[in-house]
Design a protein around this nucleic acid. Structure first.
Lengths: 122, 122
DNA sequence: TATGGTACTATCAAAAATGTAAGTATTATG
DNA sequence: CATAATACTTACATTTTTGATAGTACCATA
């Protein structure tokens, strides 16, 4: 199954959660397993499908496609297709996606701090 | 199923993702569907189990328990049990969890901005 | 005519997350 | 003795996400 079922309780919950507070809405936008990883790599500039695949070796083509589609739908990224053969497709952060970068940097710092915190209190 | 299977590819992927960059690690910490919502409510101070349940009406007792347990394991929150009857349990953000608050505020702002961005580019 | 390169898509299966409903332990109070 | 209040736990079902594998379309080039 690739898309969420619009009659499920889970779907209702996600809607409600997203409208409750905006950070939860944000989390829904950023929620895929690979979404943040993709954002990180795109923070350095536009990349082609194949380049992303090389930068994230563990991801399968299917998951990369799915995540990119979702991110495109959510307008985190912009997809540019060039009419060439072999095909060329480039992905880059949208205007709104770029505004995430400083937050990602802070999350990065927090993550490091928290890892230390965990070790100290183990 | 309640806990991740330590022999699965998915588990390997999460480990690898988490060690790749710290913001992805952070996202794993914050990843549950209700985790951020709980953090938001605890940002205002400690709360009892039943209080949290009232503040997040859609959550079930089971999910609230699971999320709180995970957050406790990850040391985002601290759980205090009082030896009383009927029982009393209080949850509050850990020292490290409190450091998330400014980031949550920024995420909140970004979320609002992004909602507008989506509407403008619909 | 066969091959290669790119960015996918389709199908099926497995795993993970979440939801539903019912039950538990404790003791004060009526 | 029955009930109420609180914070859970258990068993099971459903939904959602992710993985594995194979195949497609396009056209330049050998």
């Amino acid at each position: 199954m690739t898309s969420i079922k619009k009659t499920s309780v889970n779907y209702e919950n996600k809607l409600q959660l997203g409208s409750e507070c905006a950070q939860v809405y944000a989390a829904l936008m950023l929620g895929g397993q690979w979404t943040l990883a993709i954002c990180c790599h795109l923070a350095g500039g536009k990349l082609r499908f194949g380049e992303l695949r090389k930068k994230i070796p563990a991801i399968t083509e299917r998951m990369l496609t799915l995540q990119l589609r979702k991110m495109e739908t959510n307008k985190l990224i912009v997809r540019k297709v060039y009419a060439e053969v072999p095909p060329r497709v480039e992905y880059e952060l949208s205007e709104s996606g770029q505004k995430l970068i400083p937050i990602l940097i802070q999350l990065d710092n927090w993550g490091r701090q928290h890892q230390e915190y965990l070790q100290q209190h183990a």
